[in-house]
Amino acid sequence: MMYAVVVGALLVSLCLLLVRALLGPTVFDRALAGNAIGTVAMLLLAIFQFVSGRPEFVDLALVYGLLNIVGTIAVQKFFRYGDLGEPGVADEEHRL
């Protein structure tokens, strides 16, 4: 099976990243691991299109990638400003 190697490698890296997400001393480590898990899951979905022969999965991968980015930016914004409704203008004095 030609996809076995790459799927196995991706699953191994998923597990390793999951360990970092569980260990992660700071919340940013967890967010970073979550972002990387999202990228790996996106790649897995893109490969799964060819494994299962169903072309819908690449659309799922696209949506997953978009959600991943929005999610990461939302998490960082929440932990930076403590509030998602903050306008977050660059030159504004930040609240800690």
Partner: peptide, 23 residues
């Protein structure tokens, strides 16, 4: 998908690094 990764992953990384730096 490739373009999405290439344009958006540095943005997400930068925003995470920036948030960690500000914090």
């Amino acid at each position: 998908l490739w373009l999405l990764i290439f344009f958006c992953s540095p943005t997400a990384s930068h925003s995470l690094a920036n948030a960690a730096h500000r914090r």
